[in-house]
């Protein structure tokens, strides 16, 4: 191909698409969007032809993400919180809008793939915000729950509520996570073991819109 023929232009799009869908790493697709304009359009919009107004709506990166994370097939659409005002001058063209939407999707799935594949397991909790009640602040404050050790400076390290006479009344602890998007693989809860304490019966976890609970066995 020394004569500078563009391979993707020579092949029908089906073939080029198949080559690129054989790639299994999102970073390949993201990187290859820098090869040339037609490749970028190809990667983003998987074109029927290289006239970019013939766009079919599925991006290659989105497909790959969905193959890797099947849960994503339940996602209807994605959006960015900022940067949407760009290019409104040409909003009259629906093809233009469609292309902008595809580019946006490409950016989001690139961000997502990056987030999901590059994290090393680490603490997700950025800070403890508030406890519904604290018996002795700060000695028994919520910040102690982030301390993995049982004892700090020869004192037991724990959080204690003021306590309720009615066991049905809940106590809550609220934390801020370190990112907008976190993959949580593990939650550690350690009931305090000691005299004169009343442990919880049931623990609920609330992650933005998801509620779940874990029954804790206390020995």
């Amino acid at each position: 191909m020394k004569n500078g023929l563009d391979f993707l232009n020579l092949l029908n799009c089906d073939v080029s698409l198949k080559i690129l869908t054989n790639l299994e790493d999102p970073s390949d697709l993201v990187r290859f969007s820098a090869v040339s304009r037609s490749w970028r359009q190809f990667v983003i919009a998987d074109f029927m032809s290289f006239q970019w107004f013939v766009v079919i709506e599925n991006g290659l990166l989105k497909h790959l993400c969905r193959r890797m994370f099947p849960q994503l097939s339940r996602v209807d659409h994605v959006n960015e919180l900022c940067g949407t005002a760009k290019g409104h001058a040409e909003a009259g063209s629906s093809n233009f809008m469609e292309w902008e939407a595809l580019k946006r999707e490409h950016r989001i799935y690139a961000f997502f793939a990056r987030g999901c594949l590059s994290f090393a397991p680490r603490e997700c909790i950025y800070e403890a915000i508030i406890a519904s009640s604290t018996d002795n602040d700060p000695e028994e404050g919520i910040h102690n729950t982030l301390e993995p050790r049982d004892r700090v400076a020869r004192r037991a390290s724990y959080w204690s509520s003021k306590g309720q006479s009615n066991p049905a009344v809940p106590e809550t602890l609220t934390y801020r996570l370190c990112a907008d998007l976190c993959v949580i693989t593990e939650i550690n809860v350690r009931p305090f073991q000691g005299n004169n304490c009343f442990n919880f019966l049931l623990t609920w976890f609330h992650l933005s819109s998801i509620w779940f609970y874990i029954n804790l066995k206390i020995f």
Partner: peptide, 22 residues
């Protein structure tokens, strides 16, 4: 696909004879 995976952009351009029009 196996030959271009994890390769640089420059390599892929040479591989397919693609002119960089950016």
């Amino acid at each position: 696909a196996d030959r271009i995976k994890n390769k640089s952009v420059e390599y892929v351009r040479r591989f397919f004879g693609i002119e960089n029009d950016y």
